[in-house]
Amino acid sequence: MTALRITPMFAFGSRRALRMVERNLLVYKHQWLGLLSGFFEPFFYLLSIGFGLGRLVGDVAGPGGQTIPYALFVAPALLAASAMNGAVVESTFNFFFKLNYDKTFASILTTPMSPADISLGELAWALMRGAIYTVGFLGVMVVFGLVRSPLILLTVPGALLIGFAFATVGMAATSFMRTWQDFDLIQLVILPLFLFSGTFFPIDAMPEGVRLLIQLTPLYHGVDLLRTLSVGVVGPDTLVHVAYLTVMGLLGLAVVSRRLDKLLLK
């Protein structure tokens, strides 16, 4: 079968993608409560795990070996995890559903909009939404006195970078998916990442081999990136994290752009 639309890399910069953002803004005009409510989940987690459970945990070793309260330890990790989850859900389940089943998106494909425009636009919107939540979450951290350094402002682009890296790889993975069952694999990857990337407890306590393995996985870099920025202890590690996530995002993008035609099943 020949590719229906030849979409070179530069199509990723298509202004048409912004029309999807416009659509979402229209939709959320009616459902602003839904948009707002997305903010509460990480907030509830911070209250429960950070402060509730945090009282049992006490202080833990943070970046640079300094001892920090558990709430400060877990807050940036929750931010990183929610950036990952948001990006993955959007780029896999939602993306697959929209391109293959959602009749709204089928009708958009009858206009000059291409699948690339739609997917990139939806992704841009997901990232924007994520950025809004990040800012809200930072506000909560300020209120609870979890701010140690002005560098914490850099967690906003940091969370965006995590979202970008996971979203492009998620889209690339989706281009290989054929049925809903294939998505089980994504859960199989995401849940261990969520639980073991130094999110809830320092990985120092882990056996050497496990620790090295964790250091190869992406969420670990995301969590540690946001944590070092929040605490204000940046160093060469921080650059490694940024480089890792950037390369991951670009690799994902490269695969997606080669496989765009596969995203169209019919």
Partner: peptide
Amino acid sequence: GIPALFLTAMGLGLGGYVDRSA
């Protein structure tokens, strides 16, 4: 798998820190 992962991470992993202090 999900119960086992949760018990490992939260119960054993994080639990190690809790047991030391609480």
